[in-house]
């Protein structure tokens, strides 16, 4: 892979280890993410992918090794984590330095298609709207690195598709580096430039996805990549063949 110079990187991790008791959830892990690159991180549950994201988000400090991330980061979690006591637009600008907050909140909310909801309480938002608010809250910070921790995991299937399209569109416009943690192989392939498979505390495989955007599920290359990733995760795609796996 080209562009290994550190000034070209949005994330640089060397020899990262995170232990919970005796168990090393992350074990001397290396990771580079280029500026503007969309990386998806998949892996079985409990493989340490969320822990890695939390470390990059500066939420977990019990680590050894070297971790470099940009100053301007933003996180969207699986649950939207909006402050219920703040109206939507104030949630978007919470902790945002500088003036003109209302206008900036409105702009970010317009970007996720929620202009009409800026004055309501979070309790009246639907699941998808709350998640979009959480995205607007991340985007308004104009991050160099956007960390997405299974942000579509709690959405219903139809809303999830819309939200994935939205993220693809926002990334095309913003071109910030993105790390998307997910357990959904199709989602990873639809969105990412590169899919990382995490296993036993390290990045076991890094698979570039060179498909043209927008991507289609019925593309044969897509299907082949999907099969390969499922194999790596130890899951057979074929329902009848599940016994053999």
């Amino acid at each position: 892979m080209n562009g290994r110079d550190s000034h070209d990187l949005a994330v640089r991790v060397r020899g990262l280890t995170r232990r919970f008791g005796e168990r090393a959830v992350i074990d001397t892990l290396d990771l580079d993410i280029r500026k503007g690159e969309f990386v998806a991180l998949i892996g079985a549950s409990g493989c340490g992918k969320s822990t890695l994201l939390r470390i990059l988000a500066d939420l977990d400090h019990g680590i050894t090794g070297e971790v470099r991330v940009p100053q301007r980061r933003a996180v969207a979690f699986q649950a939207p984590r909006l402050m219920p006591w703040k109206p939507v637009w104030r949630n978007v600008t919470l902790g945002l330095p500088g003036g003109d907050q209302r206008r900036r909140a409105e702009a970010a909310l317009a970007e996720v298609g929620l202009s009409h909801r800026s004055d309501v309480w979070p309790k009246v938002l639907s699941g998808g709207e709350a998640q979009r608010t959480s995205l607007a809250r991340a985007l308004v910070r104009d991050p160099d690195l956007l960390l997405l921790d299974e942000p579509f995991g709690a959405l219903d299937a139809l809303t999830r598709i819309k939200a994935q399209h939205l993220v693809a569109e926002l990334w095309q416009r913003r071109r910030c580096a993105v790390l998307l943690v997910t357990h959904d192989v199709e989602e990873a392939l639809l969105l990412a430039d590169r899919v990382l498979v995490m296993r036993e505390g390290v990045i076991a495989r890094s698979i570039p996805v060179t498909l043209e955007r927008p991507r289609r599920l019925d593309n044969p290359v897509f299907a082949a990549l999907r099969g390969e990733l499922l194999d790596l995760l130890g899951v057979s795609d074929d329902v009848a063949g599940r016994r053999a796996a």
């Binding site: 988000a57 939420l59 979690f77 984590r81 402050m83 919470l94 902790g95 945002l96 809250r137």
Partner: peptide, 12 residues
């Protein structure tokens, strides 16, 4: 606690 954590990522 999850809200406190979210607020921390927002740089409060």
């Amino acid at each position: 606690q999850t809200l406190v954590e979210a607020a921390r990522t927002l740089g409060l």
